[in-house]
């Protein structure tokens, strides 16, 4: 039978994939996508907890809605920045951002 732990493990795997992408991706947009994966794993956790164990179940889903809203805004700002830097440099590779030490 499928229980809480199954969902949590899926979340953990998603989190790990996101973290791996965050650490190893060169392209800024790819890095942003990896972060989205991590945030999704958080949401899976929250919704799973609110379904299976939470005393205040609604709070978990409210939390994940907030996270979705913020994540959407984050992508918008991140892409605007990516576009800005692309206009200046013709690249969005994180590795090539060497004005400052990474």
């Amino acid at each position: 039978m499928i229980g809480l732990s199954h969902y949590l493990l899926v979340g953990a795997a998603l989190f790990g994939l996101g973290l791996f992408g965050l650490l190893t991706k060169r392209n800024l947009i790819a890095v942003l996508m990896s972060i989205e994966l991590m945030l999704n794993s958080v949401n899976i956790n929250l919704v799973a907890f609110s379904r299976f164990s939470a005393t205040d179940a609604a709070a978990g889903q409210v939390f994940s809605l907030f996270i979705i809203a913020v994540a959407a805004a984050e992508v918008a700002v991140g892409l605007a920045l990516a576009y800005a830097i692309y206009r200046g440099r013709d690249t969005v590779s994180v590795d090539e951002m060497n004005w400052l030490k990474w």
Binding site: A12, A13, F15, G16, L17, L19, F20, L22, L23, T24, K25, R26, N27, A30, V94, D95
Partner: peptide, 20 residues
Amino acid sequence: RSNPPNKMLLVGALAALSVV
């Protein structure tokens, strides 16, 4: 080839694996 990995593949994998 628009989404290449950087040189930290091994480090990244190890870090991600340990966190997971």
